[in-house]
Design a protein around this nucleic acid. Sequence first.
DNA 1: CTGAGTTTTTACAACGATTGACATCGGCTG
DNA 2: CAGCCGATGTCAATCGTTGTAAAAACTCAG
Lengths: 333, 333
Amino acid sequence: MVTRLSDVAARAGVSVKTVSNVINDYPHITARTRAKVQAAIEALDYTPNVSARSLRKGRSDFIALAIPEMASPYFAELGAAISRAAKKRGITVLIDQTEGEAAAEKLVLGGMRGQLIDGIIFSPITTAPTKIARTDTAKPLVLLGERHAGGTLDHVAVDSVQASFDATTHLISIGRRRIAAIGVGGGAGTGAVRRKGYRKALKAAGLPHDPTLELAGTGYHREDGASSMRELLALPEPPDAVFCFNDLLAIGALRTLAEAGLSVPRDVAVVGFDDIEDGRYHSPSLTTISPDMEWLAEQAVGLLLDRIAGTGEVDRRDLTVPYTLQIRESSAG
Amino acid sequence: MVTRLSDVAARAGVSVKTVSNVINDYPHITARTRAKVQAAIEALDYTPNVSARSLRKGRSDFIALAIPEMASPYFAELGAAISRAAKKRGITVLIDQTEGEAAAEKLVLGGMRGQLIDGIIFSPITTAPTKIARTDTAKPLVLLGERHAGGTLDHVAVDSVQASFDATTHLISIGRRRIAAIGVGGGAGTGAVRRKGYRKALKAAGLPHDPTLELAGTGYHREDGASSMRELLALPEPPDAVFCFNDLLAIGALRTLAEAGLSVPRDVAVVGFDDIEDGRYHSPSLTTISPDMEWLAEQAVGLLLDRIAGTGEVDRRDLTVPYTLQIRESSAG
DNA sequence: CTGAGTTTTTACAACGATTGACATCGGCTG
DNA sequence: CAGCCGATGTCAATCGTTGTAAAAACTCAG
C-alpha cells in the first residue's frame, strides 16, 4: 500500500521527474500529460511522503500553535479557528500546550521540534515572554495577545486598553459606581493592560479608584473568578459591578453571585472578555468583549506564512483585531 | 544555526554514526565517548531532524487524534488529555478536526497524512464510520466512543447503556415520572446506545415509554439542546425531567428552562453526560455522567502504541472506561 | 607476544522526493 | 531543411538519519 512517486510514474507511463513536475506545478506540461499523471495519482491514491519532501525542501507546511492549555474554551476556539485558517492554505497546525511558560520557551527557543515546523504562532496568557523576543529562533514567529516588552515580532491582538475602557464605561453608563476588576496583573501582560483601560474609564467618568476593588487572583480560570468574587462580597462595601478580564473569570464570578443569592445584574452587573460560547448560555447570559476570532486567525496565519515565504526583510507588523461589546443579560439595563 | 549530526560528530571528534548511537541508546558505548558526545550535543544545542529520522525509520512518533471539532469542550478536554498522555511517552499528537465524517474518512482511509503519522485515534460522535472498520489503512487505529457495526478495531469507551441507565434511574429515584431524552439518534451511534439505556431504565421502573419525549435534534450542541427543550415545553404535558445525551445539550436545555422562567430542578430536573467543566459552574450546576477522562486517554494512547510497536498479531481489545454519576444541583432532591 | 573473542567505532548505502544540468524528440517557423 | 522551442526524459546529487556489516581497538589466555 506504500505508494511512491515512482509507482505513479510507472502507472502513468512517464518519468518520475514529470510526475514531480506536475505535483509542483511546473509550467511546461501538456494538458494530456498532466491528466494522465493526475489519473495515476488518483488511481493509486498517492500522497507524497511528507518526511521526504520536508527533508529535501526544508519546508513541511506544518506550523505550530503554542497555547497555555487547549481545554480552556478561548484557546480551544482559537485553535479551531487557526486550524481552519491554515487548512484553507494547505497548512497543518500542530497544537502545543505550554502549560506555563518554561516549557514553551524551551520549545520556541530550543530545537523547534526538530526543524519539522515552518513557523510558530505563540499565544501566551500570563507572564511576559520577554526572552522570546530575541534570539536566532531561525523560524518565523507571530505573537498573539498583549505585546510584551520591546517586541520585534509580528503581532496580532485586540486593543485591550480600549476594549477594557469600553467595557468599564458600559458599566458606568448603566449607573454603576463601585466597579471591581478581576484578573488584574503586573508587568506588561493581559492583566496589566486591561487594568489600564479599566482605570482610564473610571478616571474619565470621575469615579474614585478604590484599590481594594482590584483583584489579582492566581490565574484565569473559573475557580479564580469564583474565589475573587467571594473576596469582593466579603468587603464592607461590596461592588455593584465587576469587570472580569476574561470570560472564565466572569463565569466563576457569576457562580459565586448565584450561590450568595444575589441577583445579576440587579445587585451586581458582570462583564467579561473573550466571548466564549458558554457565556451566551449562562443565566444570566454574559456581557462581554467579543474579538473577531476568525479575523484574528486569518491574519495570524497570513502573517506567519508571509514571513515564512518572504525574503525576511519585511517590516514588523502589528495588527489590531476588531471587537464589539456584546451586551447581554449580565449587564442589561 | 542548523545543527546536524555531522556537526556534533565533528565537535566530539567521533563519527556520525557514533553520535547517532548515543542518541538512540545503543548499548555498547564507552562512558567517555558518551560523555564527549553529550557535551557536544549540549554545546551545539542539537536536535535531531524529525523529517530525516522519520524518513529513515519509518516512524515519526506522531499520532493523530481525529475529532469532530476541537472547540467543543468535551473534545477540547479529550485533546488535552490525549496530548498529555502522549507527551509522557515522547509522542506528539496532531489534532484533526473532521467536521463531519466525509473529510475524516478521506483522511483515515486515504493518504494518512503522507505517512507522517504512526497511527490514529478516532473519535466520531454522530454517524457510524462503518467504512472505517475495514480496509488496508496500513496504520493502526484506535476507536473512541460507541463501537460501531462489526468493529474489528481496538476500542475504548464508556458503557453508555449502563451509564444512561444509571442517569435515568437517578431521575426516577428522585421521584420523576415523565422523563424526556434529548439527543436520541438512530443506527449504532451515541444517540442510539444511550437511548437504549434510557428506555431500559424506564422499563425497569415500570414507567410508560412516551415517544414524544424522545427528541432527536440535529446535533449535539448547546443550541440543539435549547431548541429541543423548547419543543418539550410546548408539549401538552411537558416532562418533569430531561436526560440529555451530552452536557452541551443539557446546558442548552438549562438555558431554555431559565428563559421560560421554570425552576431547575423543582419544575424540571436535568442530567447530562460527559462532565465538562462548564457544567459545574452553571446555576444550577449540572448533574452528569463523569467518565474518567485521564484513564481513557491513557488507555487509548497505550493501546495505539502497543499496536504500533507490536507485531500486529495481538487480539483486538475493547476497554470500558470507568465513570461516576456526579449529582449536582440540577437534580438535587 | 600471539590469536581468539569481544567490544566499540566507523564506512556506506539506503529512506523518498526534489532539483539542476543536459540530452532528446517532435513539431513549427521561416 | 535548418534552427528553435516546448515538453519530457536521464542521471546524479542532496536533504539528515539510521541499519548493516565490517573494520578497528581492546581484553585476556596461553
